[in-house]
Amino acid sequence: MGMGAETRKLIAKRAAEEIEFGMMVNLGIGIPTLVADYIPDSLGVMLHTENGILGMGGSPERGHEDGNLSNAGGYPVSIIKGASFFDSAEAFGMVRRGHLDITILGALEVSGKGDIANWIVPGKRVPGMGGAIDLAQKAKKVIVLMSHTTKDGKPKILTTCSLPLTVKEGANMIITERAVLKIESGGLKLIEIMPGYTVEDVLNSTEAEIEIELVRRN
């Protein structure tokens, strides 16, 4: 929210580094959609959509869009070799059955234990959960991409979520414009600081308790 295009790209690029060879991956709406731009073709990743594509490709060139070939957000996409189409029940069957390696989604709040809230602000904004609960509960790895704080600068990584949950203890990783955090054995670990920020900045803008385990990355 309120983040510049370059910051959004930086977060998406970092998220893409979590994706490994041959994985099946679902990308949510917003910053997660941008992750597709940073997944090398050589990884042979199969992108999954809730509306029934396994093997989604990038956006088609202007003028080559097809109204009947879109992602779950309704925007035109393409398909890669080996792709298949199926109905929405099968789309979620493969998720519940445990085939989804990574789901990358946005959130309003995340707790230090990995609880995620992203589908309802009671009395204010009630868009509905769509596939978020299915995905967040059943994916092998759940990565949350979001701004570190609200528009008013309040922490979004909390001791306990104040909003109704999407999933209890579901998130494995949080990537924001300030930091990369891992959630392991019920605790939050700060593993990377994003360019332009300090450990202090992260601690001061996070409510949940954080263990610092910075990893030097190439």
């Binding site: 809730e50 029940a89 979620f92 519940r96």
Partner: peptide, 15 residues
């Protein structure tokens, strides 16, 4: 009046 179900659950209830 709106009743929400998780997407996969709704699809499977219909199926």
């Amino acid at each position: 009046e709106v009743t929400f179900y998780p997407q996969g659950t709704l699809a499977e209830k219909i199926r």
